[in-house]
C-alpha cells in the first residue's frame, strides 16, 4: 500500500541529522535490523513504541511561543459533507475545518483522494455534493472570475514544484505579483528577494537561474517562495516532501513550520510523510475508504485505540 517515494524502513525516518546515524553502534544497528523485520510483518505493530516515538517527535518541535492558532475565529477553510465521484466514489461525506493559523495535514494511503481535497479547495474540481467554504465563501457558488480572485489569497506548492520552465527563478516568483499587484519593478524585486530569503535561498545566487538548474529541494523552496509571493492567507502543499532525501525533507518541514509560526499562514498539507505531518500539523485528517476516519491533534491520534489508526501509524 505504500508508495515508492515513501521511506522504506525505520532507519530512513529516524533523523534528519547525519550525526545521529553516524554514531550508531553495532547493537543499535542490530536493533534497527530487528525493527525492519517487524515492519515487514503486518501483525507485528507495537503501539506503545510507535506512540513513544511520535510523542518524542511532537515535543521536539514544540515552541515556547504562543500557539499560532486562533480557534475562536471563523474557519478559513471548511468542507461540509463533501462527496465526489468519477468512475468510482473518491470522497464520501468529508467534513473538516481549518482555523486561522492552523496547519491541517491530510494523510492516508495512496489513491484515497488526499490531493483531490486540495483541488476542491482551489475549485480546480467541483464537488458532487456538500460545501467547500474558503474565507467565508462557498467557492463552488462563485463565478469563474470570482474564483480566480479568491485563489489570489491562496498559495500552492505542487508535488513537482510546477515552476514555469520557460521563466527564470526571479520571473517565476514575480509572476503572481506582475499579474495581480501594482508593484513597480523595484517593488517586485524587493518582494522576490524577501521571499527567497524566507526560504533560505540566496537571491543573488538563484534569481537568474532557470528551474532546470536547481536541485529538487531548491525547486520546492522556490515553489514555496512563489506561493508566498502575494502574501496569501492560505498555503496549500501537495506532497511537499515527496521524492526528497531525509535532510531536504527536514528543511522543507522546518520551512513550513516557520511559515506557520512567524507568518501565521493557515495551511493544508497533503503528505505521505507521517513524521513530517506530526511535526508540522495542528490537526491531522486521516483518509480511509473515501472518508475521514480521524480528525484531531497528533496527540489524540497517537492516543487512539482504533485498530486502523494503529496499523497506519505502525506502518511507518
Amino acid at each position: 500500500m505504500r508508495d515508492a517515494d515513501e521511506p522504506k524502513d525505520a532507519t530512513e525516518t529516524k533523523s534528519d541529522n547525519p550525526a545521529d546515524t553516524a554514531t550508531n553502534t553495532p547493537d543499535e544497528e542490530r536493533r534497527a535490523t530487528d525493527r525492519r523485520g517487524d515492519d515487514r510483518d503486518p501483525d507485528a505493530v507495537h503501539p506503545e513504541r510507535v506512540r513513544a516515538a511520535i510523542r518524542k517527535e511532537i515535543t521536539a518541535d514544540q515552541v515556547a511561543d504562543e500557539d499560532p492558532r486562533d480557534t475562536d475565529a471563523h474557519p478559513v477553510i471548511e468542507l461540509r459533507d463533501v462527496s465526489l465521484a468519477f468512475d468510482r466514489p473518491i470522497l464520501t461525506g468529508v467534513s473538516f475545518a481549518a482555523y486561522p493559523g492552523e496547519t491541517v495535514a491530510i494523510v492516508g494511503e495512496s489513491g484515497t483522494g488526499k490531493s483531490t481535497i486540495v483541488k476542491l479547495i482551489l475549485r480546480l474540481l467541483v464537488a458532487d455534493r456538500g460545501e467547500v467554504c474558503v474565507l467565508g465563501n462557498d467557492i463552488e457558488k462563485l463565478t469563474y472570475e470570482q474564483a480566480l480572485e479568491i485563489r489570489q489569497h491562496m498559495g500552492m506548492v505542487f508535488q513537482g514544484s510546477a515552476l514555469f520552465d520557460s521563466l527564470s527563478v526571479f520571473e517565476n516568483i514575480a509572476y503572481p505579483l506582475r499579474e495581480h499587484t501594482k508593484l513597480d519593478d523595484a517593488g517586485i524585486e524587493e518582494r522576490v528577494r524577501e521571499k527567497l530569503r524566507i526560504v533560505d535561498l540566496d537571491p543573488d545566487q538563484v534569481m537568474e537561474l532557470s528551474p532546470s538548474e536547481l536541485s529538487g529541494g531548491m525547486q520546492k523552496r522556490v515553489g514555496v517562495a512563489r506561493g508566498l509571493a502575494a502574501n496569501p492567507k492560505i498555503m496549500l502543499y501537495d506532497e511537499p516532501t515527496s521524492g526528497l532525501d531525509p535532510l531536504t525533507t527536514g528543511t522543507i518541514t522546518n520551512l513550513i513550520l516557520k511559515l506557520q509560526r512567524e507568518y501565521k499562514v493557515t495551511s493544508v498539507v497533503v503528505t505521505h510523510d507521517i513524521r513530517s505531518a506530526f511535526r508540522m500539523a495542528s490537526k491531522i485528517a486521516l483518509l480511509h475508504d473515501q472518508r475521514i476516519v480521524f480528525f484531531g491533534s497528533p496527540e489524540e491520534m497517537t492516543a487512539s485505540d482504533d485498530p486502523y489508526i494503529q496499523t497506519f501509524l505502525g506502518g511507518y
Binding site: 485563489r151 500552492m156 505542487f158 514555469f164 503572481p176 502575494a230
Partner: peptide, 10 residues
C-alpha cells in the same frame, strides 16, 4: 501541473 499553477495564481 504548470497549467494548474496558472489557475491557482488566478
Amino acid at each position: 501541473e504548470q497549467i494548474d499553477a496558472l489557475n491557482v495564481m488566478g
